[in-house]
Design a binder for these strands. Structure first.
Lengths: 351, 351
DNA sequence: TTGTACGCGTTATCAC
DNA sequence: GTGATAACGCGTACAA
């Protein structure tokens, strides 16, 4: 009936089935290879009838495994992380793991606090996308020291230290593609709104842009680079700044920032595409509903999420460190990037 | 050093401090009122030096409390829920609770599965926003039966059964305000894109619209009501349908749907505001970056989240059922609602 | 203040 | 080989 019926223990089942608790344990965990089928069946029936469910706490206390993975993300309201968590959670559930989710709100103190807290809960593994702040001193050192001491398998995703295990998109390659595309459309003055440069996701994306410039024998001017924060606000701010520096296109390192660029451009009386081309990064769902759909680099969030789970669980379950696969982002054409006039003419005349 | 140093038990501390494990337990949990300060200090120092941390599993096993709250949301990529979780998590953390988060992906089977799973983990409480499907038979009955049997304190938020404890925005009142506003702008043919009508959030919002009509002696025609799903896709679909029925405005019951309306209107060659007024519900961050900022009803997500935590924890910790406070949404003026011409004239002539 | 039993599965040991 | 018995993990509650 109701009221959380008294818990059924393994001994109740044993009594009912007329065997010892030990046998019940073995049968129910599938390790009773040696027991006669008759016994196993009796145990299973008894367990079924009593609606027995093992107390996970008790089990964990002895096995020292909780089947819980702790996740720390910097900002749940960023669609990229929401989407990532959305894929990670079922991927882990499928393999018998639950998720304790923590949102650091981009504060390194929270990263540390939550990691300690998760460790206190004896999670089996950690999936980390720390705050940008956590990649600066002294947090960075503290974080790595802490992880070393805890002895809990961990994996960074999206944001990472080069020398620690991680899974993320191929940042440099992806932004190289993006920048090349902009240049193919005739843009040679491309403003860049980066994320925090403490993140090598940002640094690597920036490197990709530089490479694209280099390929054409050009150089990215430093006044065309604006360091933002992967959010809408810095997108707007960056846009305002870059517009004054004569860029014909803006490459925002996240779609959130690109949305900010839209707002900033409007405020400045510039039309997206016609007056200012915009490239994003992520392909969040909202990009397609904008009046001028955003041209952006789609991150294969689901693959990244699933790969992260795979790699982390390999470490958790067998201690092996898989070399994670690399993921390329894919160019999604919206209408926010226009070909520059003279480029169109060049194309025409070369036909 | 590194490598997850061997765990320090309460007995280690006791040995070090030269007292009994029991005393250590008492001191560290602050219940050692009677012990001499000297002893307490010794214990604390010993604990500090050994870096003792109680094993939460062992503690939970005996106290039967885990200090974990399970949350089930239907769609993490919906900004409303992402935002809600973002506020809930720290509110609970502040009071010593962690969160296991589950995302049902709008599938009732997952709701049930996750609730069982959370119960298996002996969570102290459940915060539920079930899938729309879960409010239909046979899921609905199963869900309530399950909750009754588990005996775990629970609280519904945003989506709820009238006769169960819940916290949510004042749906009817809020949509009444929204509809009134539209009518004040001269709209008397208002298309409505609802969420699933199995949710009384949707039904109540619809009731609010009907009341607004009634206040003017009018009646909401049934062909102006389109039942959607709180997502972008049904927003577009609903828009397409409603446009053919001569509405001058569309009231979408979520901003996501409103975004879909923007896309649908564009596809149909209608301009937002000029050709079609749009009202949303939620005030998601993206609404302000749209080329035509969305006029929408802002849900006080943070208050709702914090109130939900407060009410649930009251049930968890002292078994009392607080009567939750009511939350009104607030009209946020964008530019997506235009005054109808004849209305403007009326205003002019009445001056 | 402290000894001791307890919570509940699991694992190692031991007898049939 | 088949199954029972006992100890264990670790913090807490209650009696002493």
């Amino acid at each position: 009936m109701s009221g959380g019926g008294k818990k059924v223990t393994i001994r109740d089942v044993a009594r009912r089935a007329g065997v010892s608790p030990t046998s019940v344990s073995l049968v129910l965990s599938g390790k009773a290879a040696s027991l006669p089928e008759a016994t196993r069946e009796r145990v299973r029936r008894a367990a079924q009838e009593l609606d027995y469910r093992a107390d996970l706490l008790a089990r964990s206390l002895v096995t020292r495994r909780t089947n819980i993975i702790g996740i720390v993300v910097p900002d749940l309201t960023n669609p990229f992380f929401a989407e990532a968590v959305r894929h990670i959670q079922p991927a882990l559930a499928e393999r018998g793991y639950d998720v304790i989710l923590c949102n650091s709100e981009e504060r390194a103190e929270n990263d540390l606090r939550y990691i300690r807290l998760l460790a206190g809960r004896s999670v089996d593994g950690l999936l980390l996308a720390p705050s940008a702040e956590a990649f600066t001193e002294p947090y960075s050192r503290t974080l790595r020291k802490l992880l070393g001491e805890l002895g809990i398998p961990y994996l960074f995703f999206d944001r990472y230290f080069e020398d620690e295990p991680w899974v993320a998109v191929d940042n440099e390659g992806s932004s190289l593609l993006a920048a090349r595309y902009l240049m193919e459309q005739g843009h040679e003055k491309i403003g860049v709104i980066t994320g925090p440069l403490s993140l090598n996701s940002s640094r690597n994306r920036l490197a990709g842009v530089r490479r694209a410039y280099a390929e054409r024998g050009l150089c990215l001017r430093s006044e065309w680079v604006y360091e933002g924060k992967y959010d809408i606000a810095t997108g707007s701010a960056g846009c305002a700044e870059l517009l004054g520096r004569g860029v014909s296109a803006v490459f925002a390192f996240s779609d959130m920032q690109a949305y900010g660029v839209y707002a900033g451009a409007r405020r400045a009386g510039r039309r997206i595409s016609a007056d200012l081309s915009v490239m994003g990064f992520d392909d969040s769902v909202f990009s397609s509903v904008l009046e001028v759909p955003l041209t952006t680099m789609r991150q294969p969030v689901r693959q990244i999420a699933e790969e992260a789970c795979r790699v982390l669980l390999a470490r958790v379950e067998s201690g092996e460190t898989l070399r994670p696969q690399n993921f390329a982002a894919q160019l999604v054409l919206g209408k926010s990037v226009a070909a520059l006039p003279h480029e169109r003419e060049r194309e025409k005349s070369s036909q």
